[in-house]
């Protein structure tokens, strides 16, 4: 049976793309390339969206679901923010830092609030959807705090008194400014990453490595 594995499993390769802000930036970067999405399919309710490359299809997924699809091998490759990856315990390969969609993960509060003032609060409450990153920062700083898990509209928390401050992604700072908030401290930086299903990538390198290299070439040089 010396037909190599390459001749088996010739199903289309599925790549998982994120929905939302990162996805919008990704799709605009891929316009006119070999991985541009079929616009008609994109506007429809098709689940597997064809690309300009035959045998390569795209799944559009919510960022927090995306790594699970890749880790389970449903999609062989994916693009997701490092902030999402760092919050999840999933076994996958992280092939490259694609560098676009860069944000700061920052501690933010109402304008005029200082880090020192927060550090001296006897019962600090921080609202965030980045529980692991916030926990790690608190540990580094030798602080303890009650973490208030939120999934969206996190900036409302300090304004309405749910928390003293928030830890959230900041790209331009315009959203913060519009809500009367400001960055107090930068905890780290995040960016988009190319991820791969471990077994699919190791077992089918002839198909996946050139595609991964092409994605890196298309996205890192723009």
């Amino acid at each position: 049976m010396n037909q190599s594995g390459r001749s088996l499993g010739k199903e289309p390769i599925l790549i998982a793309f994120p929905k939302g802000r990162l996805g919008d930036e990704l799709l605009s970067r891929l316009e006119g390339t070999a991985l541009a999405l079929d616009q008609k399919a994109l506007r429809s309710r098709v689940l597997r969206i064809p690309t300009a490359t035959p045998q390569v299809q795209v799944l559009l997924l919510k960022g927090t679901d995306l790594p699970r699809y890749v880790a389970a091998g449903v999609a062989s490759l994916g693009i997701v923010g490092s902030d999402t990856l760092d919050e999840m315990d999933v076994d996958l390969l992280e092939l490259a830092d694609l560098q676009f969609g860069a944000c700061r993960l920052s501690l933010c509060g109402v304008e005029g609030l200082s880090l020192d003032a927060l550090k001296h609060k006897p019962h600090l409450r921080l609202a965030t959807k980045f529980l692991k990153a916030t926990g790690a920062w608190l540990k580094r700083e030798g602080l303890t705090a009650e973490l208030v898990p939120l999934q969206s509209s996190v900036e409302l928390a300090p304004i309405l008194g749910l928390a003293d401050a928030i830890v959230d992604l900041v790209q331009t700072g315009e959203t913060l400014k519009a809500h009367g908030l400001a960055e107090i401290s930068v905890l780290g930086t995040t960016s988009s990453r190319l991820i791969a299903a471990r077994v699919a990538y190791l077992a089918d390198p002839e198909r996946l490595r050139p595609l991964a290299a092409e994605i890196i070439r298309l996205l890192c040089n723009k």
């Binding site: 594995g5 088996l8 499993g9 091998g73 077994v199 190791l202 077992a203």
Partner: peptide, 27 residues
């Protein structure tokens, strides 16, 4: 040859072996 195989580095001390099937999603 997979020189970057570091799974189980706390346990393994020398050569490691992994078997895959093309099309399978698990080792």
């Amino acid at each position: 040859l997979d020189l970057a195989d570091v799974q189980g580095l706390d346990f393994y001390t020398g050569p490691t072996l992994r078997l895959y099937a093309p099309g399978a999603q698990q080792e």
